[in-house]
Design a protein around this nucleic acid. Sequence first.
DNA 1: TGTATTACGGATAAATAATATCCGTAAAAG
DNA 2: CTTTTACGGATATTATTTATCCGTAATACA
Lengths: 166, 166
Amino acid sequence: MQLKNHVEWALHCCSVLASLPDGERIPAKLLAELHGIPREYLSKALQALSTAEIVSGTLGPNGGYRLARAPSEISFLDIVEAVEGKGCTFVCTEIRDNMPCAEKPPSKGKKRRPCAVARVMYDADEAWRSHLRSVTLADLAKTVEKEVPLRVLKGNAKWLAANLDR
Amino acid sequence: MQLKNHVEWALHCCSVLASLPDGERIPAKLLAELHGIPREYLSKALQALSTAEIVSGTLGPNGGYRLARAPSEISFLDIVEAVEGKGCTFVCTEIRDNMPCAEKPPSKGKKRRPCAVARVMYDADEAWRSHLRSVTLADLAKTVEKEVPLRVLKGNAKWLAANLDR
DNA sequence: TGTATTACGGATAAATAATATCCGTAAAAG
DNA sequence: CTTTTACGGATATTATTTATCCGTAATACA
């Protein structure tokens, strides 16, 4: 079981967008070049983020992507769920119903309590999501600023500025 | 991202094995019939559990599987990792290295600290594992005993006994 | 000693999902 | 009117999951 690499790309792209001066936008092409990843495929991830209203895309020259809201209002979970979906990592196929002596499936309308095995797995899933929910892009930006050498930060910012220049 | 259904099968099989009278064993064939799942494929999951020394398999007539240690000593994480692997759900491909101005990869021998994005994902992964680690088969058995109707529990036990009978 | 039973592991096939590319459409800027 | 850009549909490629088949070895029992 592995998250798709869309998740990694989306997170890094959002990280870049989080430190973008107000009013600026970055086209998908540049985000792809910046990270050395395939442009067309990255677009799909960005579109997913757009649908989830985490980033906002603008058409036309000078168009591109920016965050749709403040970095402090965007959690890792928002991003992960946008590209990976909200489905639980564990899917219960109710194999208890296949046992020779099974409980009757619930009369219509009523929902049965999930089986004990599934509940443990759901709780674990929620622990995962809960941690992702607790970290925002603002937190990430703070960490990055603290531990990435200034030379690197400035170098990349300069490259971006040069390539945004039009 | 989804766990493979081997995980569900393995958990339910272990749950059954946990309430098996001492000295008894259940062959893969019966475990498959009991849950209505494909026998040959289930075997792979059981073999994985065997390799991880969670269950122990015995050859020959009257052979089959039993738990390799006490239910209280087997956590959900043990089972999940046996079947699904121990790899983290997030794999960092170090796309930071592709940026125009990257930190130098570490001189041989030294490991760089994982990037800030990856660390958050790793922590979330650990939160997931940590919860799975905290629940054992003994806990599961207690829950099941409490909430599954006696009629169902006994019915299935009877079916098993009848089919183990030889 | 022979026969049935069973785990184990290799090989392979089929189905599904992840990864990737291509292209047409529409919107915006100049 | 031309260029740039997001958006979305269609399709190809590759990897993983799901599933089956079969040969080997060990064990119990007659």
